[in-house]
Nucleic acid binder design. Sequence first.
DNA 1: GCCCTTAATGTGTCCGTTCACATGATGGGA
DNA 2: TCCCATCATGTGAACGGACACATTAAGGGC
Lengths: 337, 337
Amino acid sequence: MAGEKGKAPNIRDVAALAGVSYQTVSRVLNDSESIKPTTRDKVLAAIEQLNYRPNQAARALATNRSRTIGVLSADAKAFYGPTTAITSIEQYAREAGYRISITNISSSDSASIKSGLDHLLSQSIEALVVIAPQVRVFDVIRDLSLSVPFVTLESTGRDPRHSLSVDQIAGARLATKHLIDLGHEEIMHISGPQDWIEAEARMQGFLDEINAADLRVRAPILGDWTAHFGYYAGLELLKFRDFSAVFAGNDQMALGFMHACREMGIDVPGEMSIVGFDDIPEAAHFWPPLTTIRQNFAEVGRRAISALLAELNGVTEDDHTPIRPELVVRETTARPA
Amino acid sequence: MAGEKGKAPNIRDVAALAGVSYQTVSRVLNDSESIKPTTRDKVLAAIEQLNYRPNQAARALATNRSRTIGVLSADAKAFYGPTTAITSIEQYAREAGYRISITNISSSDSASIKSGLDHLLSQSIEALVVIAPQVRVFDVIRDLSLSVPFVTLESTGRDPRHSLSVDQIAGARLATKHLIDLGHEEIMHISGPQDWIEAEARMQGFLDEINAADLRVRAPILGDWTAHFGYYAGLELLKFRDFSAVFAGNDQMALGFMHACREMGIDVPGEMSIVGFDDIPEAAHFWPPLTTIRQNFAEVGRRAISALLAELNGVTEDDHTPIRPELVVRETTARPA
DNA sequence: GCCCTTAATGTGTCCGTTCACATGATGGGA
DNA sequence: TCCCATCATGTGAACGGACACATTAAGGGC
């Protein structure tokens, strides 16, 4: 209401109104020690009256702390996981007095990664979360020899000090083992894009388990995470019905694959078992409800911030135990015919 | 590699190395007129060598421009739309040299809205995009009498100067009319939460069309956007099979409803027609593939930034024509039995 | 060769905040 | 009554840039 005109009030305006020095106001803002309650109240009243907000840019400049955490995110076509993680990151960061700055990169070539990273770095971020688990991102990061703490949300153990994630390999093994335990011997894997670490890890888990059971290894199909891909891949693959189960790299591709099954007149799970990955909220309502691997994305986000804050505060946090994924059995898997 | 130690280099370090004054460096950075090419190259070389990055906080302080656009986003349970819009906003903002700062609010009570807005405002954002179309957000914004340009992504025409969106009412009418044209006379609507403007608008469109056709109006069910809700609502509603078609407020609720249909042994579309809203990428692969209303979220994001930038540059942009949604007919709708 | 214009570059100040240090009140012990 | 610790508050600088203005070098007309 008041002071609607001209410049925003600054700390000296507040000081003048409260009849104290600007330093006193600063002390109140940063609730330092040794402020007489009466003065504090006066200052607070002045702040209120002027609708004063501290200028973050000035504060950042003076303290040399931006209180910003950068998030580098891949332009994923499957939204659920990354979005959940980012929301959670934002929440915990804000609670800790940080803000986040997000940059999306649309392709994984190093120029675009570099430009995204540059955009972030130029904001003097204090820490970095990378949710763009494309292999190449790591090379770029290594080249830049980042001076800020960072974590990447993945789990292949390439760089265990900086990575943090649901254990993708374990999840993939869980999924594959479930199919094997049901008696399937010819299992197909529809993977995510080759340059995604998550995709690589899930494929790894799949292969590990197949080998452990001494089954025939089939070359996985490389997809792009979308339901569309799962559908078209299904149409192709199902021309030769030489497999009885599919482990899809994510729920969307599983959905597309089921669509193809229906169109080809193949019963799920009677003639074909399917397992997805992620447990997106819709998965329980697919037809049939999808058996899948649940991962706790929000927890990943929480831990990311917690790890970064610890590092910012000089504490080394050693809780790099991967978060365990969980098999959710619904109705797309059964014993082979 | 070089200068790995201590403080980040500043403009004077660059100037010293290049053998010019700091002002010359500043000119190169802002590519002002009148710089001798030789000098520019020297400066550029020094920048490169020191791996210098301008300090955004200092720049913001000096220019009184944060180059930040705030995004206030609801913690939506249905991710596709908002996420797509945000990604698009980020992209276009970055192209225009702005960064975005996102704040998620998890509930729509005014305290939480206010705190989210405060968080944003304290970063001296230059403009604001609100993707939290809860009714109450508007009241808070009005109370604060914001001094920055803002747009909200909705379309009820409450505040036409500041709103921008796919025309939700038209979309809902399209969906409803499609059902009516097929011959349905008892049509149910499962709406989004009452405090969401989008939900209100879709309901409005539904009612308009029902009235226009002189059909019986049934009280819509108030949902929460999730597939779970659609499912449980379906289980309840289908006890009384006194309707032959459903218009769901979004695709997720439609999916859950279809799940319920199947469980109750009701054939879709034979005995029950269903239309969703949004056209999420998975909708084409639901079983049966979902008839729905497509809206172009990315375009909404693009226009939001474009409108804000225009306002920041003093141009008034009058292109508030709502973006037309589109009916996508797939396989969940048919003539009533 | 001189003066004036203009292109190219340099100097002082300010942006709003915090930090290190300085100063002013208050009061208790001798 | 004086002094010194302690609490409370004030003062000058600095952070890293941008802007307004000042200055210097180069070029053209006479």
